[in-house]
């Protein structure tokens, strides 16, 4: 059950996202198409992070690692002439999901600050791995010769088609995510954040569920990475840099930690702000910093949380 205000905001927001290409076409500003596609790609990453961060209480500071793995899973096959998205995208999800399982298996044995540091360390390790492999562009990265190909069905070189592919994936993610957080699995994840000793006392081996959530979030992060290289038509290890993990986390916090739609709002707010402010000054983060502090102080559930709440908080 969500409040009316939230449902309306959600529908209006999604409708607006759906209409962006139309506006871009009418105003002949293809730039908007590019900007909002980028926003939605980061929204996918932010939603996946919030699954473990907000719902599961696992403060992973290395989410960019999965973004990076997903990006490499597109760029490396492309480098060797494999351009099929049906190969690249599933590969991106499987590899980043497996990486998340491995990283989770180690880091979930710790908690608190050590957990944050370990996830950060793993991501930085992958980053340094990325900048050290000369064959795949090292720290310069490499150009993506072609966007992922889907037979003749979907032509991602067409910005509009690509836009609606990303839009469709975001909608699918929100729909599946909504099922997941209310299903048994999601309830276990949320309750484990609420009170882990209690979970164990009533008979849940929480580790396996948290690990699975970690893997799922990693796989979706990988998909976002695959989309991102297609968006920029470029691969760079900087997708994995810790500052990128920080940005995704900021989107989640800004939009509403522990909510499904908040991170989407956060991605919109963050990237629009970046776009507008960076036109004024290169030090745009000087503005972002205090803003974030305000959000944390006055809106515990971020921008999404500012919308009036329904009687039961679960959304």
């Amino acid at each position: 059950m969500r409040s009316r205000a939230r449902v309306l905001t959600l529908l209006a927001g999604l409708l607006a996202l759906g209409l962006v290409p139309l506006v871009a076409a009418l105003t002949q500003q293809p730039f908007y198409l590019d900007l909002f596609r980028r926003i939605m790609i980061f929204a996918i990453a932010a939603v996946s992070l919030d699954l473990i961060l907000g719902f599961g209480g696992m403060v992973s500071f290395g989410h960019a690692a999965y973004l990076g793995i997903g990006a490499y899973a597109v760029a490396i096959p492309a480098f060797y002439g494999i351009h099929s998205g049906l190969v690249q995208w599933p590969l991106a999800m499987v590899l980043s999901g497996l990486a998340a399982l491995a990283i989770g298996a180690v880091s979930l044995r710790t908690s608190g600050v050590s957990f944050i540091m370990i996830t950060l360390a793993f991501a930085q390790m992958l980053y340094y791995l990325g900048i050290s492999i000369n064959a795949w562009g090292a720290d310069d990265g490499m150009r993506l010769a072609r966007r992922s190909q889907f037979g003749g069905v979907l032509d991602l070189t067409n910005g509009y088609v690509f836009y609606y592919v990303v839009f469709g994936l975001l909608l699918t993610l929100l729909w599946l995510g909504n099922r997941l957080v209310h299903a048994r699995f999601g309830v276990v994840i949320r309750a484990a954040r609420s009170n882990e000793p209690r979970m164990r006392a009533i008979g849940f081996s929480t580790f396996r569920y948290k690990l699975a959530a970690f893997g799922i979030a990693g796989a979706i992060g990988g998909l976002a990475g695959a989309l991102l290289t297609n968006q920029t038509e470029y691969l760079t290890p900087s997708y994995m840099h810790w500052t990128r993990s920080g940005e995704i986390m900021v989107m989640v916090i800004l939009g509403g930690i522990g909510t499904l739609y908040g991170p989407v709002l956060g991605a919109v707010a963050f990237l629009l702000l970046e776009d507008v402010l960076s036109a004024w000054t290169v030090h745009w983060q000087v503005v972002l910093g205090p803003l974030l502090v305000l959000v944390v102080l006055y809106a515990r559930r971020g921008l999404w949380g500012l919308l009036p709440e329904a009687r039961r908080a679960d959304g």
């Binding site: 299903a183 699995f185 276990v188 008979g203």
Partner: peptide
């Protein structure tokens, strides 16, 4: 579980003893 309703709290305890919770679809 402070943020959950009283009924949710108890339903979780039931759920812990009603098979595995790798179920992603039906609202618990």
């Amino acid at each position: 579980f402070r943020e959950f309703t009283a009924l949710d709290n108890v339903a979780l305890a039931v759920q812990a003893h009603a098979g595995h919770s790798f179920r992603f679809w039906t609202p618990a």
